[in-house]
């Protein structure tokens, strides 16, 4: 399979073509540095993203901002959003507190990114 990937490492934004066979990289074209090639490999085989969101907390004017502790598979982003939306929260919440454990079975926790007294 061939995929086109835009590099995000610098403003050049190289358009790289990655050829894969299952999880195996067959060929990378268009990368002008090693960092770019590494990024292309990762993106082609298993793209991951951090997810950040806010949740309204009952009786709180300001919503709580949250994030995944580390990137999760890109195709699970909306599942993750749904899980965050369903989280039942009560103040006070401290920054770093786990809001959803092992979100959608990704092995990654969703944590609070601010204090909400």
């Amino acid at each position: 399979m061939k995929q086109t990937i835009t590099c995000i490492n610098c403003p050049i934004g190289c358009r790289m073509t990655v050829e894969t066979n299952g999880d195996e990289i067959v060929n990378i074209d268009g990368a002008s540095c090693k960092r770019g090639a590494d990024y292309a490999k990762q993106e082609a085989v298993s793209p991951r993203r951090m997810v950040t969101a806010v949740v309204n907390v009952p009786s709180c004017q300001t919503p709580l901002s949250v994030k995944t502790e580390s990137p999760i598979p890109k195709d699970r982003i909306f599942d993750c959003m749904r899980a965050i939306g369903n989280a039942e929260l009560k103040t006070p919440i401290r920054m770093g507190e786990v809001v959803c454990e092992n979100v959608c079975g990704t092995g990654v926790n969703v944590v609070s990114t601010r204090d909400l007294p």
């Binding site: 835009t6 590099c7 995000i8 490492n9 610098c10 403003p11 934004g13 993203r49 890109k74």
Partner: peptide, 12 residues
């Protein structure tokens, strides 16, 4: 905007 944002906020 930054390339990273074009990829991760629009293309994704």
């Amino acid at each position: 905007g930054l390339n990273r944002n074009i990829v991760q906020c629009l293309q994704d």
